[in-house]
Amino acid sequence: MVEKGRVEDVGEMISRNVTAYEARPLGKVDGNIEARSASVTTQDMSLVYLDWGAPTVGTSLAKDEAFNLRITLEGQVSTTDPNFGEISAEKEKGNARIFSLTEETNTYSHGHIGLNLVIPHNVLENRVKSFYQHELGKSLRFAPLLDLSTIKGQSILSLLEYFKTQHTEAPEVFDNPIFGTQFQELMLSNILAGMDHNYKQILDKGAMDVAIPRAVKRAEDFMRSNAYRPITIELLAREAGCSERALHSGFRKFRNKTPLSVLRDIRLEHAHSDLMAMTGSVTDIAMKWGFSNLGRFSKSYVERYGERPSQTLKVAPCQIFKAA
């Protein structure tokens, strides 16, 4: 839901959804100008839309242990950062700001409209720990700017646009915990692999360890028994008894697939079984197993079973009759 009001009212919205925050206009504001804001949350991630409507200064009143990625849709904005100083971004430059709010951090906005992705630091740091199955020596820290014109920048921007569009047009998709977990996994992996941070070089160039076949089988057995549940790579690695990196390497070596592609195959098998048993409509069954895009679901289904999901539903009664 979009909230409208004074600049100060939007500051109160940020206080409710992100951290204690105070906002005030820079100079006199026309009484007809309204600031607008909206916030949605999925799993551990929040997406905040901000349109200040007028030149504004905002001050964080408390430290916020969260990663903030802010995309500038219009205008210009700058934030003070304790490690990098002033971080400035504007739409014309095609970059996004990465920052964490600390007490008395000031943000200056001029005609600014933006999207802000907020993820708790511990969520990202736990993924790095899980990747190595080792504690971090230093806190995870990102470079202050992301070039949105790069391939990896475009990938993250596309995910944010999808996040916004889905919540606008089909918010019920995120009510499915399987889909919500899949989307968060995709976002976290793109952030850690595509953005510069103090563990990036190690993630890219570290010596590759490989899970033994027994660990790969443990992961597969867990996926088959729990396919109806939200499953993350972090959880799979823990169940298999190895690091995420070793698990990815093991699946590539012994299955020539990623763990999540194997999980999708398993869920596709369950969807096929449900279609054969006529437990619901194609849409209901696809959504149940985390396939929110019916076009992609149908394409994968045809590639695997040689017919469309709707055809399986139609032929199922004949097969049941013959079996009887």
Score class of each variant (00 low, 15 high):
residue 234 E to M: 11
residue 47 L to Q: 07
residue 270 H to N: 13
residue 323 A to W: 12
residue 29 V to L: 08
residue 217 K to I: 10
residue 46 S to G: 10
residue 176 N to A: 09
residue 150 T to R: 06
residue 221 D to L: 11
residue 239 E to A: 05
residue 222 F to R: 04
residue 77 V to N: 03
residue 104 E to G: 03
residue 108 Y to V: 15
residue 67 F to P: 04
residue 248 H to A: 01
residue 253 K to W: 02
residue 304 R to H: 06
residue 189 S to I: 07
residue 76 Q to W: 07
residue 161 E to N: 13
residue 186 L to V: 03
residue 156 I to S: 01
residue 104 E to M: 14
residue 20 A to S: 14
residue 269 E to W: 08
residue 126 N to V: 03
residue 293 N to Y: 01
residue 16 R to K: 14
residue 173 V to L: 15
residue 43 Q to Y: 08
residue 162 Y to M: 13
residue 81 D to I: 04
residue 176 N to Y: 09
residue 14 I to E: 07
residue 42 T to N: 13
residue 154 Q to W: 06
residue 300 S to A: 15
residue 52 W to R: 03
residue 223 M to G: 00
residue 3 E to R: 13
residue 17 N to W: 14
residue 314 K to F: 07
residue 272 H to Y: 15
residue 321 F to N: 08
residue 314 K to I: 09
residue 322 K to N: 10
residue 61 L to T: 03
residue 280 G to P: 06
residue 214 R to M: 11
residue 154 Q to P: 00
residue 48 V to A: 00
residue 197 H to Q: 05
residue 133 Q to M: 13
residue 239 E to V: 09
residue 102 T to F: 11
residue 141 R to V: 07
residue 64 D to H: 12
residue 23 A to P: 07
residue 200 K to V: 02
residue 97 R to L: 13
residue 241 G to Y: 05
residue 92 E to P: 02
residue 257 K to V: 02
residue 137 G to D: 15
residue 289 W to T: 01
residue 281 S to N: 04
residue 11 G to A: 07
residue 249 S to F: 01
residue 242 C to N: 01
residue 104 E to K: 15
residue 308 R to E: 08
residue 145 L to P: 04
residue 261 S to H: 06
residue 39 S to K: 05
residue 300 S to F: 04
residue 272 H to Q: 13
residue 236 L to T: 09
residue 80 T to Q: 12
residue 315 V to T: 12
residue 324 A to E: 10
residue 136 L to Q: 02
residue 161 E to V: 12
residue 86 E to P: 00
residue 255 R to C: 11
residue 233 I to M: 15
residue 292 S to E: 12
residue 11 G to R: 09
residue 140 L to E: 09
residue 294 L to E: 11
residue 206 G to R: 12
residue 300 S to G: 02
residue 19 T to M: 09
residue 307 E to K: 13
residue 90 E to F: 04
residue 188 L to E: 08
residue 102 T to Y: 13
residue 247 L to E: 03
residue 275 L to K: 07
residue 62 A to M: 12
residue 189 S to L: 09
residue 9 D to R: 11
residue 26 L to V: 15
residue 76 Q to P: 01
residue 155 S to P: 00
residue 225 S to V: 06
residue 102 T to L: 10
residue 211 A to R: 01
residue 290 G to I: 05
residue 192 L to C: 06
residue 16 R to L: 14
residue 243 S to L: 07
residue 124 L to K: 05
residue 62 A to L: 08
residue 237 A to W: 05
residue 19 T to E: 06
residue 306 G to A: 04
residue 63 K to F: 10
residue 61 L to N: 03
residue 158 S to P: 00
residue 12 E to S: 14
residue 75 G to V: 06
residue 171 P to T: 09
residue 166 Q to V: 15
residue 80 T to V: 04
residue 113 I to R: 15
residue 4 K to P: 00
residue 294 L to G: 01
residue 3 E to S: 11
residue 144 P to E: 02
residue 69 L to M: 14
residue 157 L to A: 11
residue 72 T to L: 11
residue 84 F to R: 01
residue 232 T to H: 03
residue 44 D to E: 13
residue 99 F to D: 11
residue 256 N to C: 01
residue 62 A to V: 06
